[in-house]
Amino acid sequence: MTAPMIASPSQFLGLRIAPPLPRFAAPTSPRSATSLRSPGISAAYTAAAERRPADALSPAAPSPVASLYDVLGLPADATGQEIKAAYRRLARASHPDVVATDRKGTSADEFIRIHAAYSTLSDPDKRADYDRKLLLLGRHRRTVRRPTTQPSSSWAFSRSPSFPGYGRRTWETDQCW
C-alpha cells in the first residue's frame, strides 16, 4: 500500500541557499565597528529555488542559477586577494558559530556553498578549469542575482524534521551507559 515517496534527495539535504545580496557582496567595508553577530543579517538571506545537491557539492559543475563568482559576489576577474577577502567576509556573516540561533540550520548550507565556491576559485588550477567551463557554457553573468522567492509550503516540505536543521542533543543516542 505504501506509495513510493516522491521526494528528491535535495529535499532531504535541505539545500536552500540564496546568493548573497549585493550589500554583502560589495567588496568594501571589511571590518567595521559592528559585531559579527549583529542582528539583521538574517533578514538578508531568503530562500532561493531548490537545486540539485550535485550543484553545491561538486563546484566544478556550474549551477544553472549562479556562478561561483556570484556566490562570492565578485567579478570574474577578481584577484586571489579579493577572493580570500570575500570568503572571510561572507564566512563571518554565514558561519553557524556567529549567526543567530534560529538560523543555525540554514547558515550551515550557506557556509558550505560559500566554502565550495572559495575552494574552487582560490586554487589556480581548479579556477582555470572552472573558467573554461563557464566560457564553454557562455552563460556567466556578472550581475549578482536577486534571490527568487518561492511558496512557503514548498519551503516547509523541503526540510526533513532533523536533517540538518537540528539542535544538539548529546544524550539522545548515547546507549553505552
Partner: peptide, 10 residues
C-alpha cells in the same frame, strides 16, 4: 532519477 524508493535512514 532523484526519487527515493523508501524513506532514507539517518
Amino acid at each position: 532519477t532523484q526519487s527515493t524508493v523508501s524513506p532514507f535512514i539517518e
